[in-house]
């Protein structure tokens, strides 16, 4: 067992963040997490908890499903 779990959740954090002129470090500081975690989330290498997802949306001043998208399975 190695490698990341496939997830159907994608996000537009980077887009929304640059619109609001926020850096990864800004968001990380506001949430009390490391910058590396924000990077990992943007790159799809980490799935934030539900709490953290809401906090991110709040910082970006956007509704949750503007920030995170759930891809419907085309296959199974």
């Amino acid at each position: 067992m190695g490698g990341p779990k496939p997830t159907r959740v994608s996000n537009r954090i980077r887009e929304l963040r640059t619109e609001r002129e926020l850096t990864q470090a800004d968001i990380a500081a506001k949430l009390g997490v490391t910058r590396q975690t924000i990077i990992a989330i943007e790159q799809g290498r980490y799935s934030p908890s539900l709490e953290m997802a809401f906090q991110i949306a709040r910082v970006l001043e956007a509704p949750l499903d503007d920030v995170f998208q759930y891809r419907e399975a085309a296959d199974s």
């Binding site: 470090a25 949430l31 009390g32 997490v33 490391t34 910058r35 590396q36 975690t37 990992a40 980490y46 934030p48 908890s49 953290m52």
Partner: peptide, 14 residues
Amino acid sequence: FEEPDFTTDERDRA
């Protein structure tokens, strides 16, 4: 110059 990151967040715990 970046702030040294010594926070332990939920990802570190996971």
